[in-house]
Structures are given as C-alpha cells and as structure tokens.
C-alpha cells in the first residue's frame, strides 16, 4: 500500500524528471575533452564480409583529418555509418556528447550538423547553381516552411558569398548539369557550406581533377578547417601530404595507424599494406 502511495507521489511530483525525458548523454565521453565525433567498437558486416571491424575513431573539434587506406578498407562504409545510411551491428557513434547518431536517419543527422560530399559529385543537375545552394541552405526543412519559404536579402547575400568562395559567381544561373566535373565538386562543397555543418565528410574531392583544380580545392578545404571540422577520405597521396596534419590509415575495417603523415609513412605496417604499393 505504501508502495502505491509512494508511486503516486513520485508520479505527480512536479519536480520529478522521468527517465525518458532526460537528455541522452554518452556515458563514456567526459565533458570538456572537445571531441566532436566519437566512434567506438563499430562493426558491420555484409553477408558475412566484415566491412568494418571494431573501428575506433575520435575526431576533435576544428580538426582536418585525412582517412586513407586501400580499396575495401571500409572508408565509404564508415561515412555511411556516420551519416545514417548504414546501421552498424555493434558499437557506438556519438556526435558531440548528446547526439546519438545510431538513433537518427539521414535528414536528422544532416540537420544536426553533419554534411556529406559524395565520391561522385551529386548535385541537382536540372536546377541552377543558385537553386542548388538555396536548397542546401540551413533552416527549417519541414514541408510547410518549405512551401512558404521566401528568400530574404541576407540569405541571397549568403548564397552569393558562398558562390564567391567556390568560384562559381559566373555560373550562378547556369543549370548545375552544365558545369565541369571539377566545378560540380566545388558546388557540392558549397552546398555543404550552406548547410553550416559542424562536421564535413568529404569523399575523394580531387578525383578526376586537374592540378590547378586540385590546388584550388586544397586551398578551399584548408580555409574551411578550423571553423569546421573536416574528415577527408582521399586516395591521392600528394594531395593528402599537401594539406593534412593528422592522418588515419584504415585497413580491413579497422584503424591500422594514426599520426602525422611522416609518422604514418614510416610505420612498417602501413608501408606493407598500402604505401609500399604506392611508392
């Protein structure tokens, strides 16, 4: 009887905070460490093939981290997990301390501040460059707000600013499909910027680019680091050498080595599986 009374008293207590109302906290993450992305013990397998095998990855705020690794090392799968496209079999993925990525779908993760650039440039080809950026712009992306949305002058300024940043001012009103390969890559980076994400996932941004285009892209990305946190997946070693401070080498779905480019390059394991073949 007293149990019941206690239960009722607890339930109606105005100060009582229900468990399900408590904001989720990553129990393993200490406050103030400055980690933005936290992957621990992630494994995923497709039909018995372990694409990701007990992967641990910690990204600090403001970092520009390069992920390298041979084909099939699990780089793209890792991106799929972070952006909600693939669910891991085991493990934890947290964005900051409060956002559990494994409970969200792609749009929610994008809204939370993770932007993704695909390996193959993916833009809305039939719409103008300006419209592409407008669509990507951060804001309320519900159905009704979208139906009633009107561009404010400051939003137009913001789009023009990004156009300048990615060097596509002259192509403002062209259909995105008319852009060259390199320009599409920049447009996609521009679309990421419009989302004002905290974390940018960039998959092979310089694939198929000329040397000048590569230099421009490198400049663009280094300018963005600091203000944004960037994870860059890249195959081009020269490009990685030119911009990266921290490099993580993936092999068979887990981290093989981590450190500066020089440390990584002198690591015998890395040389064996990856760089050896390159050099």
């Amino acid at each position: 009887m007293t149990n019941v009374v206690d239960f009722i008293r607890q339930t109606v207590d105005r100060d009582h905070v229900y468990d399900f109302m408590m904001p989720q906290q990553n129990p393993m993450l200490e406050v103030g460490q400055g980690f933005l992305l936290y992957l621990e013990g992630i494994s995923v397998s497709f039909d018995g093939f372990k694409a990701i095998n007990d992967l641990n990855l910690y990204i600090k705020e403001g970092e520009l981290r390069c992920i390298i690794g041979p084909n099939g090392a699990g780089k793209t799968t890792m991106m799929d997990i972070i952006t909600g496209k693939t669910r891991p079999d085991t493990g934890q993925a947290w964005f900051g301390q409060k956002i559990n990525l494994l409970e969200m779908d792609e749009p929610e993760i994008a809204q939370a501040g993770i932007g993704r650039k695909f390996q193959k440039p993916t833009v809305f080809e039939l719409q103008s460059v300006f419209c592409n950026l407008e669509l990507a712009m951060a804001g309320d992306k519900g159905v009704m707000p979208t139906l009633l949305a009107r561009l404010t002058p400051s939003q137009v300024d913001r789009i023009d600013h990004v156009l300048q940043l990615i060097g596509l001012v002259g192509q403002r009103n062209l259909p995105a499909g008319a852009l060259s390969h390199g320009q599409k890559q920049w447009l996609e980076i521009g679309m990421l910027l419009m989302q004002s994400p905290k974390l940018l996932l960039v998959d092979e941004p310089v694939a198929g680019m000329t040397h000048q285009e590569m230099d421009r892209t490198g400049e663009l990305l280094t300018n963005l680091a600091g203000e944004h946190t960037i994870i860059l997946v890249e195959h081009d070693m020269d490009f990685v050498r030119s911009i990266a401070s921290e490099v993580t080498v993936l092999h068979q779905g887990s981290v093989l080595a981590e450190g500066t480019m020089q440390q990584v390059q002198s690591n015998p394991k890395v040389v064996e599986v990856y760089l050896g073949a390159e050099a």
Binding site: P107, L126, Q127, L135, G142, V143, L148, A149
Partner: peptide
C-alpha cells in the same frame, strides 16, 4: 515554391536530398 524545387531534387537525386536534410518521405 521551394517545395517544388525540393520535389525536383527528390526526383533527380533522392539520396542527395536526404543528406541535404530534407525528410524525403514527408515531402
């Protein structure tokens, strides 16, 4: 409206639209 442009985006590149932050199924 912008909703119409989101519709075109869904038609032409559904996955991209999702990663841009639009809940495609609601649209």
């Amino acid at each position: 409206s912008r909703l119409g442009r989101v519709a075109l985006a869904i038609r032409d590149a559904e996955a991209r639209t999702r990663f841009t932050g639009y809940k495609v199924e609601n649209f």
